[in-house]
Simulated assay, not measured.
Amino acid sequence: MIKIAFVIDTVESPTAGTEKQLLLLIKHLDRTRFEPYLCVLRSSKWIEEKFDLCSLFVAGIDSFKTITGLKGILRLSGWFNENGINIVQTHFRDSSIAGILAARFAGIKTVIGTRRNQGYWLTPVELRMQKFLDRWVTAYIANSQSTKQWMANTEGVDLKRVEVINNGFDFSIIETESDINRKEMRLSLGVAEDAPVIGIVANLRPIKDHATFLQAANIVHAQIPTARFLIIGDGSEKPVLQKQTEELKLTDAVIFLGARLDVPRILAACDIGVLSSRSESFSNAIVEYMAAGLPVVTTDVGGAREAVDDGINGFIVAIGDFEEMGKRIIELLKADTIKQMGRESRKRSLERFALTSMVAKTEYLYNRCQEGSN
C-alpha cells in the first residue's frame, strides 16, 4: 500500500479549480493500492463541516515569519513519520514550502509538485525560493503543455521531470440533455426561453478579468438586446463589477448568481461559455463548458488551445480584447453551426478530459516514482 499525503494551504470550497481536482483524485484513487491523507496548513469551515474523503491532518501554519510556522513544519514532518507516508504531493506556494521541507526533514524520498497556475503572483523572492526547493522534488504534474513549458522557461525545471496530466472531469454530473431541464433552469433564473444566454464560471478576482467580459457583453447587447449574461462565482471584485454593470446600463441583462453548487444545471440553460482570464494554467471552466456541449469563447491563456480548436468548437481571442470577444460571441449566436460547435466541444471533452484518464495517469506516476525510490 502506497501512502500519499496531499498537502495544500486549505480548502475553502470544493468548487475552486485546484481544490476540485484534488478532491476528485482523492475520491477516485484505487484504495486497494493507495491510501490518501489530506494535510492542510490551516482548517476551514468547509473542511470542518463537510470533508470526509480520507484522514485529515491540520498543521496549524498561518505564517512562515514566526516560530509558529517552523513548529508547524516540524509537526507536519513528525506526522509524516508517524503515519509511514511514502509520497508527499504539494499544491500552491505555501504548502510547497511546508510540504517539501517537512518531507525533507522526515527523509521521504518521493515528493511530487503540482502546477495548476503559471505563477502570475510570484515575486522575485518567491521565485528564487521556488527554484531552491525544486532540487528536492522528484517529479511535477502540470495540467497543460503550456504550463510545462512555462516551468522550464521560468523555474528552469528539466522538462523530463514534468508530467502533463490534464484536468479530469466527472461527466456523470452533467445534466441529461433535455429541453425540460433547460426550461426549468431558465424559469428559475428569470430568463426567457428564447433568449441567447452567455455564461462565465469564475471566482470574482482581478485575474479572471470579468471587466473584459462585461465590456464584451455591452457590445453583444447593443446588437442583440435579448441576450442575457450569467456570472457564476463570488469574490472580492463583486462590488466593482456590479458598479461597472450599472455604468454600462446592463443591469437588466447581467445576472450575478454568486457561488453555486449546481453549475452543470446552469450551463444546461446556456448557449455559450466564456473565459476572460488574464492568466491560467488550464481552466476547469473550459472543460465544464465543453462537457455541457457549449461552444467556448476564451482568452489565449495557459492550455486554452489544448481544449479549444479555434473555429471548430469555439474561438480564442487575445487577452483583454473585449471587442474581439464581443464580435465572436455575436458570430456564434448568429451562426447556423452553433449547435454543431457545441457537439464538437462535447466530443473533445470526452476524448481529452475523462476523470478515469486523469486518475489512471496519476496512479501510474505514483507507482513509477515509488519504484524509483526503492
Score class of each variant (00 low, 15 high):
Ile108Leu: 02
Ala139Lys: 08
Glu82Ala: 14
Ala59Trp: 00
Ile87Pro: 00
Ile100Gly: 15
Arg93Thr: 14
Thr123Tyr: 09
Asn143Pro: 08
Ile112Ser: 15
Gly69Leu: 02
Gly99His: 01
Lys183Ile: 07
Lys71Leu: 04
Arg128Gln: 10
Trp121Leu: 04
Leu56Pro: 06
Ser55Thr: 02
Asn143Cys: 04
Ile97Trp: 08
Thr110Lys: 09
Asp94Ser: 00
Asp158Glu: 11
Glu126Ser: 13
Ser146His: 09
Ala103His: 03
Ser63Trp: 01
Lys160Gly: 11
Leu187Ser: 15
Arg128Leu: 08
Thr176Pro: 02
Thr110His: 00
Ala103Tyr: 06
Ala152Ile: 01
Gly99Gln: 07
Ile85Lys: 00
Arg115Pro: 04
Asn153Cys: 02
Ile141Cys: 11
Leu76Thr: 03
Arg115Thr: 08
Asn81Leu: 09
Phe92His: 13
Met185Gln: 12
Ala139Gly: 11
Thr154Trp: 02
Trp121Asn: 11
Ala139Ser: 15
Ala98Asp: 10
Trp150Arg: 10
Gln130Arg: 05
Trp121Tyr: 14
Arg186Tyr: 08
Asn181Tyr: 11
Glu175Ser: 09
Asn83Arg: 05
Ser96Val: 03
Asp94Tyr: 03
Gly99Thr: 00
Ile112Asp: 15
Ile174Gln: 13
Ile173Leu: 04
Leu74Met: 11
Arg161Tyr: 07
Ile108Glu: 07
Arg104Ala: 11
Ile97Cys: 07
Pro124Asp: 01
Leu101His: 04
Arg186His: 07
Val125Arg: 14
Ile67His: 13
His91Trp: 00
Ala106Lys: 03
Thr110Pro: 00
Glu126Asp: 14
Ser77Asp: 06
Arg93His: 10
Arg104Lys: 06
Gly190Trp: 06
Ile73Ala: 12
Trp121Gln: 12
Val164Thr: 10
Gly78Tyr: 02
Asn81Tyr: 10
Asn81Gln: 10
Tyr120Leu: 04
Lys131Cys: 04
Thr123Asp: 13
Val88Ala: 14
Leu189Asn: 12
Lys131Asp: 14
Glu155Thr: 07
Thr147Tyr: 05
Ser178Glu: 12
Phe80Tyr: 13
Gly78Arg: 04
Asp179Tyr: 06
Leu70Ala: 14
Met151Cys: 08
Phe64Pro: 06
Pro124Asn: 01
Ser95Glu: 09
Lys148Ser: 12
His91Ala: 07
Arg128Tyr: 07
Asn86Ala: 11
